[in-house]
Amino acid sequence: MYYVVSEGLRRFNIPHTFEFLSIINLYARWIREGRLVVDSSWNKEGLRFTVQDPCKLVRQGIGDSVADDLRFVVKKVVGEENFVDVWPNKSNNYCCGGGGGALQSGFVKNRRHYGRTKFDQFAATGADVVITPCHNCHSQVLDICKEFGGKWQTTHLWNWIEKALVR
């Protein structure tokens, strides 16, 4: 979780010499620089994609710029026309409901009730695939999809980059 490190380094004033980066920013940079070449032509059937903006990465982490990079990468990988955004999004996105340790806390009813908002949000996009670049989100989105009868597939981003990879 991005914020655990970025905020922890700041709050506890932990000395370090490295620079802390998000893989999402790097994917985008590598694609822009031509070091990572992707081709969306595999998506002939027009599979429609949307994304989850993780709170800890976007709102509490880097902000809209990383959400924009996430969209940039997804559009390159699945085809611009196959991306459909959720509302609200980016820094103003809804938490999936799995954050803050909710997946581990055991209050399943509450967690799913909370996740209903997220479910409706994704359902409204009509997407076939929800990309979740955070493990917590991934587990929760899988769970609410199953719980409320969603029709989408929940995946990480790297699977699709791998699919579109040109070597």
């Binding site: 979780m1 490190v5 010499t17 802390f20």
Partner: peptide, 20 residues
């Protein structure tokens, strides 16, 4: 977190990539 930072420092890495 301190433990992780110490580990990375020992490895002398210039960048820490967070995967999510």
């Amino acid at each position: 977190l301190r433990k992780q930072v110490e580990t990375i420092e020992e490895l002398c890495c210039r960048y820490y990539i967070n995967t999510e």
